[in-house]
Design a binder for these strands. Structure first.
Lengths: 243, 243
DNA sequence: CGCTTTGTTGAACGGGTTCAATTCGCGTGG
DNA sequence: CCACGCGAATTGAACCCGTTCAACAAAGCG
């Protein structure tokens, strides 16, 4: 695969124009790329020195399990995202990471990362931006769980997913492929699977969005954005891009 | 105030033993410290290049307001915490920051920060640890909002607050001073103020914790930890401290 | 001492859960 | 090719946790 085709590179390219030299530095990130099967944890909570990855293909969830069996998905990770970046600093993983589909991930070598950060402020800034965009998303989901009802929350989640997928060229203008089950949605949105089903039905019957056979389609994008109180700008490059 | 007495320094000292040289470097962080009144935003959502601070005294909330008037507090910041660190990278503030009490905060100078990070991996690691501990807390609150009921959520929040305050020498073994109103608690925990009141009453009547006149007291610490499913280790230094 | 903010309590309502049953999609083996 | 099995989706009904509305008490403050 050409470096420019990698989702991670597409993502960074959204922030800065990458020089050939910068591209070749990033290229080293993908020296050790290998597949992992769906379902078995890449990293599990409490694990020591688990190492970090860049997700290159497939979908992943990071989650925590509570005493009592409940599960909360902290984030859905898509190609181009870091996996377990914080564990490079934190010795112990504070949540589990599980592939939802079969995935392909590249081991994140500490030396390569530091080397990339030291080549100059441009690349460093782009990488840190990408990393802190992840945290901004977690904050947005926190707000959803705290103060949005089930319909708003679901709509917001789908729009956010779409916006992130767009960045790495994995979504169409009004739809995207989504391998999540209703159980995944429930655990991500803090709802029961039964209720997610009802919410999806309502959204479909109201002509807002359709999720069927692994495809999410926005039937009324504008209305959906209004209902979800979705801030189109907060994921938009142009407002933050360095020229 | 001696450098060693500052909450931020106490917090870092929990991760590494600070040399005199490192202390003098950190000392520069506090060159420009000044008070801010309670109630008026330090940073408001959407503001451009808002700058960042280290909170030296007093309590602060970071929050988002939704269309419809609802408010979600993303984090309660206590002395030693960074304020708006992410806005050093993000050009635009993605949430508002409001002092809850009168506060004293030090302007975070980008040059000072970079200088401190470049002096060596020890100090850099400690500072980044402190910063990423913040994110870990947001994640823990996300889990609370998604999968814990009101009582568990409230208990967990109080324990977390206590653990953080302990680090900077602001909590006793079984109690701490807490300037939050029930409205603050409600907005932080995604509940109504009315319900927070009932939950606090229940916790009090069950002999678990008492919150009266600005003092939180743990009446049955062990039981509380069990109810909240609180991971004592996740804020514990010893498990991550570098020797 | 009045005024505003914060805390407290009751009663009715409703969004979301839980339990339970049924259906659908699909791979697997007979 | 069909029967079976199993996970995911779907739907109904009863229940309950937390909200909302409303009223009042208490506490801080000019």
């Amino acid at each position: 695969m050409g470096t420019k085709d990698r989702p991670f590179v597409k993502k960074l390219a959204g922030y800065i124009d990458l020089s050939d030299e910068e591209l070749s530095i990033i290229d080293r990130f993908f020296e050790h790329t290998r597949p992992f099967p769906a379902g078995s944890d890449l990293i599990h909570e409490g694990q020591r020195s688990p190492g970090a990855f860049i997700l290159d293909d497939g979908w992943v969830s990071s989650y925590k399990v509570l005493r009592g069996g409940g599960r909360q998905i902290v984030n859905i990770l898509i190609p181009g995202d870091f996996l377990g970046l914080r564990t490079v600093l934190y010795r112990t993983a504070d949540h589990s990471i599980e592939p939802i589909t079969q995935i392909s991930a590249s081991t994140l070598d500490k030396q390569n990362l530091l080397h990339a950060l030291e080549t100059g402020p441009r690349l460093a800034t782009a990488i840190l931006w990408a990393a802190s965009a992840d945290e901004a998303m977690v904050v947005e989901r926190l707000v959803s769980l705290g103060r949005r009802d089930a319909v708003e929350r679901t709509a917001h989640f789908m729009l956010e997913l779409w916006a992130r997928l767009r960045r790495v060229g994995m979504a169409d203008p009004l739809s995207f492929a989504c391998p999540l089950s209703q159980y995944h949605l429930a655990d991500a949105l803090g709802l029961s699977a039964v209720h997610i089903n009802r919410v999806l039905r309502q959204l479909r019957e109201d002509g807002l969005l359709t999720f069927r056979k692994g495809i999410v389609t926005f039937d009324d994008f504008e209305h959906l954005v209004r209902i979800a109180d979705f801030n189109i700008g907060y994921l938009d490059y142009d407002s933050i891009r360095v020229h």
